[in-house]
């Protein structure tokens, strides 16, 4: 059974278009959805959850489309957003009481377990919680109804490093329990820590969909003096940027012999920075 399949998704806004976005999710894996601000991550997630009306394309979740069984599909999805603040002046207890009645698979014991694990005081209101605790509360709600697919929209934005690490460990535990996670973020170090696959969106188009090791393994990072490379080598550089003491660029791993320079393995952040730089340069 397919967990999530997106095919030919298009959405046009003035000044921005989501063009032919297609991808699928593997069961029991964490897929990192990366892209710079405004690349189309939240629009794509909005279309998946039917918050946003797509212009064209097919989205099937658990082999069903939203038009067939929107409520049934959502029973199996847990949505957590780091940015949105629901009912900030209502007690967590009241929000949970309303939420639980909608889910046939709601488990009170699981909810209590997560409240304890996350140190959530149900008598507090979201406005009294820190950014990390708000995410933990959303996560407790999502996990207490037995969601099989977790859609996380920038859940770690605004969190301190300790809270981020805590959350990432929780995601890894959930993966071990067989949950599928789609994790949108622009903090790529989070994905180095926990993601299996990567989905990279660039200006509304999917630029890469692959295991994270394959994606970063495709590239190498080199540093060189300004204007020290011949034109033939310059053409092979991807997203050249200036650093404090030299120039740095990404190259395709197979080309490293051509340069005869020390080439480091690239991490996800370097790949994204240089690929975005290259894309901006091509647009100019």
């Amino acid at each position: 059974m397919s967990i999530l399949e997106v095919g030919g998704l298009c959405k046009n806004y003035p000044g921005f278009s989501l063009s032919d976005v297609s991808f699928s999710l593997e069961k029991g894996k964490i897929t990192g959805f990366i892209g710079r601000n405004g690349a189309g991550k939240s629009t794509t997630l909005g279309c998946i959850l039917n918050f946003i009306h797509s212009d064209s394309g097919e989205i099937t979740v658990f082999d069903k489309s939203f038009s067939d069984d929107e409520a049934g599909i959502k029973q199996k999805i847990g949505y957590v957003s780091g940015a949105v603040n629901f009912y900030p002046k209502k007690k967590l207890r009241s929000i949970a009481a309303v939420t639980k009645q909608f889910y046939s698979g709601w488990d009170d014991a699981a909810y209590e377990k997560y409240c304890k694990l996350f140190s959530l005081d149900e008598n507090k209101t979201p406005s009294e919680l820190s950014a990390g605790m708000k995410v933990k509360f959303s996560l407790a709600l999502a996990l207490s109804h037995g969601a099989e697919l977790l859609v996380l929209d920038e859940p770690t934005s605004g969190l301190d490093p300790v809270s981020r690490d805590e959350l990432l460990e929780i995601f890894l535990t959930l993966k071990d329990e067989g949950k599928t996670i789609l994790f949108s973020t622009h903090i790529t170090s989070d994905l180095d820590f926990c993601a299996d696959n990567i989905l990279y969106i660039q200006k509304g188009k999917i630029a890469a969909e692959s295991p994270i090791t394959d994606f970063v393994g495709k590239y190498r990072l080199i540093e060189y003096e300004k204007d020290s490379l011949p034109d033939e080598q310059k053409k092979k550089l991807i997203g050249e940027i200036r650093t404090k003491n030299a120039m740095r660029a990404l190259i395709i791993a197979e080309d490293r012999e051509l340069f005869g320079l020390p080439a480091e393995k690239a991490d996800l952040e370097s790949c994204m920075v240089h690929l975005e730089k290259e894309s901006d340069a091509n647009d100019r």
């Binding site: 918050f51 409520a71 959502k74 949505y79 949105v84 909608f102």
Partner: peptide
Amino acid sequence: VFSLSLPV
């Protein structure tokens, strides 16, 4: 957003 994330 809260209501739409519920199974409705």
